[in-house]
Design a protein around this nucleic acid. Structure first.
Lengths: 346, 346
DNA sequence: CTGTTAGCGCATTCAC
DNA sequence: GTGAATGCGCTAACAG
């Protein structure tokens, strides 16, 4: 209806070749700066100018078909409310863009888990060059179909070593235990998600080892990683004969539940119990009593995962990666020495 | 080193054609269930079986090249901490998957805004069939380059009508004003982000219109959409000679700031001031005083945006979409009648 | 009912 | 220095 004539096809190599009166293969080589092409600079400039003028854009599909490389990565993340996934995703997107890749995102519902191999089709159909996976449950798919396309598991380890990019959960746990241990706490508790999730599993193992060596007791409560889960776990802890004096909470959602349970029980923070979050978030600074947290390198993890995957795609190699920096304590007001503790009398 | 021979190429149409002793074009038509092909069921079954056995997967690049359609959409979202974007993204991903599309995500830093047309290259290079954009600032790029590829603006309107998928902010505002107005409040305030963001702008306009017609006064505070912004805005409100008795807060980050300001000023909620959040989140139920919120149809918005874009890609048509369902009030404990109000004496 | 043919747009090996 | 030719894997129009 309105100007039906203006519609113009996107220029191809042939179009710009016609404009400069050269063969399109020459144009291709000039635009790609093919070193084996000894072209005179002046001709080259002419080509570039023509391409520019016509607004030439290489067709990614055609190029991908020819090169058998799509320039895109597929990222599978669990469908969770926890904001850490946004941060990891952010790190991955930035790094991928910087390295000339695009990223497709898929979200896997927690109640409809699939096997990692179920995402292989993306590579097999040449939609992506490789897979970034955060879908593994511990033991899931162990011994079963092994992925035969480039991939890395991030944040959660895969069924076998060699393609994992994970955070240094042990370091995080050590930070927590050193902090409250140093304040004099000897009865700690950790409120976290279920141990079928690898991250939680590693955290729990680390806590066990570290606390044992420090002569500190640690109680574990594993529940859903939601407000309700944190609430329930903390209620249970507070109902014990000897209530822990310091609690570490595995994620932000659970933290809100934990705080509610503490409030309802009349337990003051940090007076009665010290509280530490394993998710850092700006909002922690604005709570009634600002909550100390362990800040994990989330964006760095995403970036490292992309780097590792690209290495596998382009070189075929690669090793496990442990991301441990910057992993720091954000000191706020939710920790203090336990009431009448040796530390106070020193 | 280990079994270098096992490496087998991915099967192509030709491979399965060879296996069933038919031409590969026939195989193609059979697999695609081409209606113009009258093939005998038995042959068809043979083909399917062979394809299955060889693990055949159509090459998406080759298909895209031929069909000039990639089957992927590009989504550009602002780089923000606010969790609404995750929810919108989720809705979009789900719908896209259901409709056979994949989605690439790009995040645009708020401090390095680009023109929507800067993302056109994705379509021009045949990396995506269309663009989902949430990048517009009011007035940005108005009158400048107009997008010449299929696209929709979501949550934030584009420079001109016709390709917008937005939420019914007016309805949201009406819910808020009706609620607190009905409780007897006559001095309201709205704490929100800056009005260069279209969502905020529409919310403010709606509030102005609705409150005028209801004979209610509304004060606006526009600050950064962060905890610090909400804190600052609320402090300002509390410093006024006549403090508003009900405050609506535009997003979750600001809400934490607002609550801190109220706490520090010794203003009780809902005793001294009623509080309503325009972002719904499970954590609101776990706060010291659980906060009432307006729950927006975020996933629905994402899904609607995908539908609208696919319509433009596949049919070339499309109109503006207003997403208004389900848009509801989540009643919690942060609202009450103002102290000694007419409503109490009725 | 099935085979032939011609590209989609590009990179690349080989001639000249 | 540059042109010609081939094929990546697939779809679709056309033969037979």
């Amino acid at each position: 209806m309105s100007s039906p004539s203006t519609e113009r096809r996107r220029p191809r190599l042939a179009d710009i070749a016609a404009a400069v009166d050269l063969h399109y293969s020459t144009v291709s080589r000039a635009l790609n700066a093919d070193p084996s092409l000894s072209i005179r600079p002046e001709t080259r400039a002419r080509i570039l100018r023509a391409a520019e003028r016509q607004g030439y854009r290489p067709n990614a599909m055609a190029r991908a078909l020819k090169r058998s490389r799509t320039g895109s990565l597929a990222m599978v993340v669990p469908l969770l409310r926890n904001p850490i996934w946004s941060d990891i995703q952010r790190g991955a997107l930035k790094r991928a863009e910087a390295r000339g890749y695009v990223v497709m995102i898929l979200e896997e519902p927690e109640d409809a888990l699939r096997h990692p191999a179920d995402y292989q089709y993306l590579v097999e159909e040449s939609r992506a060059d490789g897979l970034l996976l955060a879908t593994a449950r511990r033991g899931a798919g162990a011994g079963s179909r092994v992925l035969s396309v480039p991939h890395v598991h991030f944040n959660r380890r895969g069924p076998r070593p060699g393609n994992d990019v994970i955070m240094d959960e042990e370091k995080a746990m050590r930070l927590f235990i050193d902090l409250v241990g140093g304040l004099g706490h000897r009865r700690l508790a950790i409120v976290d998600g279920f141990k079928v999730v690898d991250t939680t599993y590693r955290r729990a193992s680390a806590a066990r080892a570290i606390s044992a060596e420090a002569g500190i007791s640690v109680l574990f409560q594993h529940e859903e990683h939601t407000e309700a889960g944190g609430y329930l776990s903390t209620q249970r802890l507070l109902a014990r004969p000897r209530v822990p004096t310091a609690i570490g909470v595995g994620n932000l959602n659970q933290l809100f539940g934990a705080m509610k349970a503490l409030r309802e029980a009349g337990a003051s923070v940090p007076g009665d119990v010290s509280l530490v979050s394993f998710d850092e978030d700006e909002c922690l600074a604005y709570l009634d009593v600002p909550v100390t947290s362990v800040s994990m390198p989330l964006e760095q993890l995403g970036a490292a995962a992309v780097d590792a995957l690209i290495e596998r795609v382009e070189q075929g190699g690669g090793e496990d990666v442990l991301v441990g920096d910057p992993l720091t304590l954000v000191h706020r007001s939710s920790t203090a020495p336990p009431r009448s503790t040796p530390a106070l009398h020193r």
